[in-house]
């Protein structure tokens, strides 16, 4: 992660991106600022690094194509998370269609990928937690990850996911209970 003092202001990044001379430099700064956060946001959903890398590249290519039209009515990072979330959910849907599995079988795909991860240890709580997260429905997984790992305020999450704060709180609460149940059941 870059030092806080070096982190460029989002408004400045967007403004300089619209200047053709500064476009590439500002884009590079933007990628460096958000790449790790978006990477982990995607990876927690799709587990494998290669899949995450493919999705993340698509996310930033979309950012490159559309940032000039970004009107700054919302936060830049909210806008980036929205693109990353949509790309990830679209990718998951494509995977489901390709593998012809039902929604209930979805967790099995990612659970199997989880078992194949380097350093996987079923006895470690951090791996158990990832297994528990993979047992959640896709959209609930997004809400849980955004709140638990990224600490995103409900208001911003509501703006990003176009839903209400109350619905998100309820969704997160249910997700926490499910994860707890999974962890207790695996003991």
């Amino acid at each position: 992660m870059p030092d806080a003092l070096d982190v460029p202001d989002d408004n400045l990044l967007v403004a300089s991106f619209k200047d053709e001379k500064l476009k590439e430099a500002s884009f590079t700064k933007l990628v460096r600022k958000y790449q790790e956060r978006l990477y982990w946001h995607v990876r927690r959903m799709v587990v494998e690094h290669e899949d995450t890398n493919d999705i993340l590249q698509n996310v930033f290519i979309k950012v490159w194509k559309n940032l000039a039209d970004f009107r700054q009515e919302s936060n830049l990072y909210t806008w980036l998370y929205r693109i990353a979330t949509n790309e990830t959910l679209t990718w998951i849907e494509q995977q489901k269609r390709r593998t012809s599995v039902s929604l209930s079988d979805n967790e099995d795909i990612f659970s199997e990928k989880l078992l194949a991860q380097k350093g996987y240890d079923p006895n470690k709580i951090e791996w158990k937690l990832q297994q528990a997260i993979q047992s959640l429905p896709d959209k609930q997984k997004v809400v849980f990850n955004l709140r638990y790992y990224d600490e995103m305020p409900y208001e911003e999450m509501a703006e990003m996911l176009s839903t209400s704060v109350g619905a998100l709180k309820a969704s997160y609460h249910h997700a926490v209970k499910k994860v707890e149940g999974f962890l207790k059941g695996s003991d």
Binding site: V31, Q35, H49, I125, E126, E180
Partner: peptide
């Protein structure tokens, strides 16, 4: 019980991935 679990991400990332990412983009 999640309050007592460390929020460590156990996934491995290839060496120098984030430094090279901007080049690939």
């Amino acid at each position: 019980i999640l309050a007592d679990i460390p929020r460590i991400m156990p996934y491995a990332v290839p060496d120098d991935y984030f430094n090279r990412f901007i080049t690939s983009i």
